[in-house]
Design a protein around this nucleic acid. Sequence first.
DNA 1: ATGAAAGCGCTAACAG
DNA 2: CTGTTAGCGCTTTCAT
Lengths: 338, 338
Amino acid sequence: MTTIKDIAKAAGVSVTTVSRALNGYSDVNERTRKKIIEISKELNYSPNILARGLVMNKSKTIGLLVSGFNKESIKDNFTFEVLSGINQYAAETDYDLVLFNTNSTKQREKTYAQLCRERRVDGVIVQGIKTDDPYLQEVVESNIPCVLIDIPVQTENVGFVTTDNIAGAKSAVSYLIELGHKNIAMVNGHDLAFVSQERLEGYKRALSEAAGLSFREELVVNGSFEEGKSEAVTFKLLNAFPEVTAIFCASDLMALGSIKAAGKSGRRVPENLSIIGYDDILLSSYVSPRLTTIAQNKQKLGFHAAQQLIEMLEKETAPAHIILETELKIRESTAKIK
Amino acid sequence: MTTIKDIAKAAGVSVTTVSRALNGYSDVNERTRKKIIEISKELNYSPNILARGLVMNKSKTIGLLVSGFNKESIKDNFTFEVLSGINQYAAETDYDLVLFNTNSTKQREKTYAQLCRERRVDGVIVQGIKTDDPYLQEVVESNIPCVLIDIPVQTENVGFVTTDNIAGAKSAVSYLIELGHKNIAMVNGHDLAFVSQERLEGYKRALSEAAGLSFREELVVNGSFEEGKSEAVTFKLLNAFPEVTAIFCASDLMALGSIKAAGKSGRRVPENLSIIGYDDILLSSYVSPRLTTIAQNKQKLGFHAAQQLIEMLEKETAPAHIILETELKIRESTAKIK
DNA sequence: ATGAAAGCGCTAACAG
DNA sequence: CTGTTAGCGCTTTCAT
């Protein structure tokens, strides 16, 4: 493997000069530079980034701490779309992405900071961890530049990007209200997700702003963001509260489960039950009935996370928070109340 | 940041001893080791993998060269599922994954070998590149350990894992023949994919083994693995050859396009036209009619690729080729000919 | 404009 | 069982 030493020898100069020539420093004779570049090409040289990282104390890599690399998340594609957005931005820079290999057993052995320091990543993007994950606390405490996705925490070196979950949820529920629904239930994710807290808040606000509607705790159930779980809790809910004519689900996947439950309990969507989801996953527009939902741009989420992080790294800008808009997509799973 | 030097100082030993103690060498007094480990914990030490990599000349990272990080591939999820399988295996090892950030402009600047050497990856997994991609040639020529996915090339340091595409395609077409179809068209991907070549071969074999059927070149069209393209070519095909009663598509996504084309040309699936896909993507079981298809286990593809590569790396085993089975999934898009 | 030398954090002979 | 020394490939003062 060619090193700058080899080039130096071949060019009859010192390694210092080679280094400077290759890195575009101005204080090197243009003729020397040309020669050096030429030789480095001939010798098929590529710099050893590890060595460079060692001395410069940075690696030009970004760590990716994502939770969604399992069977379940293939369905909602969320992780992948976010990843795709991150990659899209990163591809234009000289940063590479390293996927941290953490399973739960490994996490017990290694702290977040260890993970990052070992690989000497310059910064981290965190996605999909629960609010009680010990790593989250570490992210906040450590001084490693970090951008969180969908977790609204901001410190001296931690920024975040998310969508406006309160507004999104509110617009979903308001739409149901517009359609004439009065008894609107909610299938939420779980308490350990910020987005769930916010979507619940949006649900409440929509209700409180509508004339004559009030929040009923018993109409909110948790579906763990899982299709099957949602189906189960929805089924129970529909039996217990037959007056419910519309359901706001905190994810499309759960909405799919709810639709199944509706069928089981003898209701037709949207004739007897309106269901609105959240996310706008690919399946939403393919299932039958096509799902009305709150769309969020997952690629953008990743793109902006990468962008923010790299700007923090390169320009030393302060961490920010970026909040993306959502969009109501009206399809076939909702209808006016009869 | 704590280094072994700091530990050495604190423990009153040399860095060598620290290094050996921490790396579990036997030739170190257990009392010393204990002390060192203790101190290293107190000091919150984590090893600098870059430095280690520099001297050991390996990085404990695997490079991922995947093409599918774009909008289109979100639909078929192939890339993500493969990635998920790779990650699943890698998570049990001490290898991390680095996603190479290549877009086409970058690829022009940097050769494959450069990409790998810069990051000093120990090995590479390549997925989704076309057969005319210059990187492929490089993979074969370079001496970097590599496992290809769905490209049957094997050399001294290159292995591959794929599914049995010939058998898979053959079973698809044979099934159509069983259903009584005689004029069976094929929508293939493109000539620059090995899987396309093989699936075409499977198609031919199924025909040739059936009594009274023969291969008709004009019934094979290319859909570029794209839904829209497939819709267009299928539409033309159906108009030109109204005798066609069944189509074998080389991917589910294309099958979806073909179904649309069928509708446009006034045919019903499966009543007037049987369509069978390939891949078993998530959408297949959600669309209507649910798609009959040849399922391949994409996660396994990735899992075995990672496994093979890491075994090559650790045990210096020779590159192998792994061929996974496929499975015919009969659903609703195929029916007996009337 | 160029070179000599030091050092990033670690491992690996080699010697004791 | 432990320490000394050299060196991985690179960047960076500090001289010249």
